[in-house]
Simulated scan of single mutants.
Amino acid sequence: MVRLRGRSSPDRPAPADIVLTPVAAFRLSRLLSKASVTSPLRAPFTRYVGSQGPAGLHEVAREEAGKETVGES
């Protein structure tokens, strides 16, 4: 996109970008892993247990014989 406009890319990222990138990554991961609106995406892999706070769900990994879920022990 920068080349299409005829400008060169910056040598360094702006300080605000350095601060906002980890915050955005955290918010996106939280949305995908806990929010109720994304529960249909997690449904094949998790089982609903109940609510966890005002905006989150408590889910556990589905158990299948011979398979382990990443991050579960």
Rank of each mutant, 00 (worst) to 15 (best):
Y48V: 10
S9W: 15
L31I: 12
A14P: 01
F45I: 07
R42L: 00
E68C: 14
S39R: 11
V19E: 11
P40T: 03
P54Y: 10
V60T: 13
A55R: 12
V70N: 02
F26I: 14
A61P: 04
V23T: 11
A25F: 12
R62A: 01
G6F: 03
L31S: 13
A43C: 05
G53D: 02
A24F: 13
I18S: 05
T38P: 00
P22G: 03
S73E: 08
F26P: 01
L31C: 08
G66T: 06
P54N: 07
A35R: 07
P44L: 07
A25Y: 14
A24D: 14
S8H: 09
M1G: 06
M1D: 13
P10F: 07
S33P: 03
V49D: 10
S29L: 09
S36Q: 13
S51H: 15
E59G: 03
R47T: 08
T46Q: 01
T46H: 05
P22N: 07
A24P: 10
V70H: 11
R62I: 12
L20K: 12
F45E: 02
A16Y: 06
V23Q: 14
T21P: 05
T69G: 03
S29W: 10
A35H: 09
R27L: 13
R5V: 11
Q52C: 05
S33I: 07
Y48P: 00
M1V: 13
A43K: 12
P22Y: 09
A25P: 03
T69E: 10
